[in-house]
């Protein structure tokens, strides 16, 4: 992990894998002799998040970022590997009584603010649910007071608590989701594409709000997004995922100035250029491979301009570079990938 500070990790993810069985039904397998099929949604992913910091996972659809989020909050059990929150291995908590205090400290914000709020509940009820669930406050009047506080926290008025979710716009609903997540006084929030359903001016409001809340409550974020510009704005450290594997982990600054992995570079180059500098190269061809039958060797090799025999054969493992990034690429390891700027704008002859 880049630049070790004295901050201890809030979350430590070690070699986590999550597989899904997507085999045809038993009878088909028996009659047609079809084999079992395993989808490796997340494979061999390790990272750590320090307290009060934001770690981002980026990647295109189907790369396993949302699965990772669900594994972290315990909605999925990892197939192998361990998730440790504040030094406690989540898998060691067998009973509800043991797990509950830890679960209170981590909450999740979902992508779709239309689907993640119960349409039949009033907003105050939605926000009060974690308070009741974790028995944080018992008196109804006190709960109401706390709900009003939370609404004020996310920039809404106490009167809004009486309304139903359908009376609000997408941005307001996402504020309600955030208020609900904050209700249990968590230290760690997993945000799965919290702004991708929102318009850009509303996205700015929510991102600003999330940063303010992070400062106020010293929150730690696992921030998942496909939008590199948003990630750059929010994150301290970034992990780039491709087909279920982390291909590069680096500090936000390093990743955007010196990306190592060819896939990271491709992502950066494909962002529409608002500055209109006109230095764009042609977009890379190819699409994400089928994760059920990933390519041999490095999963990215069919789309990679630097791939050689070794890339087609061996799966690369993450190795640290000199400026502290972790990169899983044979080319970077062997030093045959040129500097980023050289690639972007070829020097005139």
């Amino acid at each position: 992990m880049p630049e070790l500070t004295d901050k201890s990790p809030a979350l430590q993810v070690t070699k986590v894998a999550r597989y899904f069985d997507v085999s045809p039904p038993f009878l088909n397998r028996l009659l047609e002799g079809a084999p079992r099929q395993i989808l490796k949604a997340v494979d061999d992913v390790s990272f750590a998040i320090k307290k009060g910091e934001t770690f981002s996972l980026v990647g295109e659809s189907g790369c396993g970022k949302s699965t990772m989020a669900r594994v972290v909050v315990g909605l999925y059990k990892p197939t192998s590997g361990a998730v440790a929150f504040d030094g406690v291995d989540m898998a060691s908590l067998r009973t509800q009584a043991e797990a509950l205090p830890l679960k209170r400290r981590m909450q999740m914000i979902f992508q779709d603010p239309f689907a993640s709020l119960n349409p039949r509940w009033r907003v105050s009820n939605i926000i009060a649910e974690p308070i009741r669930n974790f028995h944080m406050i018992e008196q109804p009047a006190d709960i109401q007071k706390r709900v009003d506080e939370l609404l004020a926290c996310v920039g809404m008025s106490a009167r809004d608590g009486k309304k139903f979710p359908h009376e609000f716009s997408g941005g307001q609903r996402q504020r309600i989701s955030i208020a609900r997540a904050l209700a249990s006084q968590p230290e760690f929030l997993v945000c799965d594409e919290p702004t991708s359903a929102l318009d850009v001016s509303v996205q700015a409001q929510i991102l600003n709000l999330m940063k303010d809340l992070q400062d106020e409550f010293n929150l730690t974020y696992l921030f998942i997004s496909h939008d590199l510009a948003v990630v750059r704005h929010m994150a301290n450290n970034i992990g780039v995922m491709y087909l279920g594997r982390l291909v590069e982990v680096a500090a936000a600054r390093t990743l955007f100035t010196r990306p190592y992995h060819p896939y990271t570079r491709m992502l950066l180059e494909s962002i529409p250029d608002l500055e209109m500098t006109g230095t764009k190269t042609a977009p890379l061809a190819g699409e994400i491979a089928n994760p059920i039958h990933p390519p041999s060797g490095c999963y990215f090799h069919p789309r990679c301009g630097f791939a050689n025999e070794r890339c087609r054969r061996d799966l690369p493992i993450s190795k640290p570079t000199k400026d502290g990034a972790l990169v899983a690429c044979h080319g970077v390891e062997e030093g045959r990938i040129p500097e980023f700027r050289e690639v972007k704008t070829p020097a005139p002859a």
């Binding site: 409001q205 940063k211 939008d227 510009a229 750059r232 500055e275």
Partner: peptide, 14 residues
């Protein structure tokens, strides 16, 4: 309000 690469701002204009 668009997070961008040319600008390093703590808060976005909202």
């Amino acid at each position: 309000s668009i997070p961008g690469f040319g600008k390093d701002v703590r808060r976005l204009t909202q």
